[in-house]
Nucleic acid binder design. Structure first.
Lengths: 174, 174
DNA sequence: TTGTATGTTTAGTAATTACTAAACGCAGTA
DNA sequence: TACTGCGTTTAGTAATTACTAAACATACAA
């Protein structure tokens, strides 16, 4: 049996679902993105429902978080009450957008908690080996997070994290 | 009530548990790493059990995956049948190690699936707009993954992804 | 106003994942 | 040989997360 384009597309959607899960996102999200990514036209919520097999509720919420991450875009057509969605095709832009998203919310909060440990340590200073040890370790971790943070911020600032920039990085790392 | 060092340490463990979850790892893993990270001496499995409140089984398996990731190291003392664990303190080394870990297993498999879609498309070539469209899109995604892949590989190759390298990257991105 | 086409929220279920408790295996010791 | 001290595995449970089905809200149309 010849492999049809429809079949190939279905497998691709399946593949992206896996990748999605790997990055810690629900697999439905990957499926939604894949369906949009392979569609030459913008799709309505119900069309996404139809093509993914998910329910309207699920698609509604997940497409929203995809939009927040900058991986899909919502648009409307005049004289049509439906919302339409398209996939972002500039992945470098998407990466920046995701980093930005993470920058706020959870990640920052977590990183701040380390920084806070550090200041609490300073406020409760005692002259003994254990204190010194703990302090040095926490400080080292905090500095590491700071480095990550600067990197992320630098990437976010780039107008275009294109292939050229990636090659630049690669050459520097040689 | 004065904040005791013990309390601060406890909160730190809590914080790393959160961070662990954020990166998609079980929170117990973060706790185990944190406990080891704050200990000046290597800890036995039972000591970890005691300090994290997890059970032996959980610690046994999670400490193993931590070791596979290069975030902790297992050692033994002569004339002592226990295993002892210490935290890796060179986080850049740990990043490399984690990347390497991911390189194999899941991630690579997922990325390969995109590449496979591409070759299947080529094998089932048809001259029409839909085919062309799908092909271009899949190809673009595959190229993006390749870029990520080269980056990861470059990082892995570095003998030391120290602060100096991070600053180098930052300067290039300016 | 009521009806219809849309997206959202909610309450509950299914599936997955993290963890526990306890059995097990194995190496060394008596 | 049996016993002890350790790590591992396993079978089951708790907690979390992804998802469904259906009620709901809103805007527009008749």
């Amino acid at each position: 049996m010849a492999t049809t384009l429809t079949q190939i597309k279905k497998d691709f959607v399946e593949g992206l679902s896996q990748i999605s899960r790997f990055w810690g996102f629900p697999k439905g999200m990957g499926a939604i993105f894949a369906v949009l990514y392979l569609s030459p036209t913008a799709l309505s919520l119900d069309e996404i429902v139809e093509r993914t097999g998910l329910t309207k509720g699920a698609v509604s919420t997940e497409v929203r978080t995809l939009a927040r991450m900058g991986l899909v875009h919502r648009s409307t057509k005049l004289g049509d009450r439906k919302d339409y969605y398209t996939a972002e095709t500039d992945f470098y832009a998407a990466v920046r957008s995701i980093l930005q998203e993470r920058q706020n919310s959870e990640f920052d909060r977590a990183v701040r908690s380390v920084k806070e440990t550090l200041t609490r340590l300073e406020e409760n200073w005692v002259e003994n080996d254990e204190w010194n040890f703990v302090y040095e370790r926490v400080k080292a971790l905090q500095e590491f997070f700071d480095a990550i943070d600067s990197l992320a911020k630098a990437v976010i600032r780039l107008e275009s994290l294109g292939l050229s920039n990636v090659t630049k990085i690669l050459s520097v790392l040689k």
